[in-house]
Write a protein that binds this DNA or RNA. Sequence first.
DNA 1: GTAATTCCTACTAAATTAGTAGTAAAATAG
DNA 2: CTATTTTACTACTAATTTAGTAGGAATTAC
Lengths: 131, 131
Amino acid sequence: MKISTKGRYALSIMIQLGRVYSEGEYLSLTEISEREHISLKYLEKIMISLKKADFFLVQKGKEGGYLLKKDPSEISIGSIIRAAEEELDVVDCVKSGGCPKKNQCGTYPLWKGLSEEINLYLDSKFLKEYL
Amino acid sequence: MKISTKGRYALSIMIQLGRVYSEGEYLSLTEISEREHISLKYLEKIMISLKKADFFLVQKGKEGGYLLKKDPSEISIGSIIRAAEEELDVVDCVKSGGCPKKNQCGTYPLWKGLSEEINLYLDSKFLKEYL
DNA sequence: GTAATTCCTACTAAATTAGTAGTAAAATAG
DNA sequence: CTATTTTACTACTAATTTAGTAGGAATTAC
């Protein structure tokens, strides 16, 4: 039951972007890589997942980088971790489609409940609190 | 953020033992293996972890097996999953000893809080509810 | 046009999780 | 007392997931 380093690094990226958000300047992965001591190549890979959540304005080329679209007070930690980890459910049967036997399954409510608990907790925390 | 199959199978074992608890008879892994369609060898391995939590009375040899020491209403799901998964913390820095920088770490409270949330939830559910 | 950057595809390595195999030791029924 | 059933112990192997790297194409500011 571990959060992956991908998830933790994703949060680091978002924290760095959150810190410069008010300045309205684009921050490059090279810069984040140096500040957080994470390889540029790995950050690029993590960024692929994060971009799907539509968190950023992107500026290619020199002086380019990423800029948050929303204020850090409006970005939940849950939305970040879900984007990075792809999902935040403790068992696969919980997700849409899921297990066909879920209604007969005695432990399904347990895992469903736990997944909801985790998502609720992480959705109650916002990026701004961790800058 | 998945519960491992080891954790889920551990719960299956406990559910089977919980169902026969009141009869006071020992239930063998061979029997559980057939009822749950899990290989005997794998169950043996999972049992090594569960035994550390001191859940069972053990009877070797013919007609032997395992018998719960406590009533299923007194065995929390948290204690089962912690025994099987070894720990239930979302990051390593949370556990005793843990990361030396935890007091300077901005996200430590987040992961600590989430781990507590998960443990609290699973400790509020008891085996009896899933028999 | 050059340097800095994102974007894209494809790999490789490491670690964890899942599962198997064989045998020894204990206990009981008969 | 012996055959059988069961746990206990030790050591593997296989599969899957996670972590991390490599190289180059496209884009843009200066």
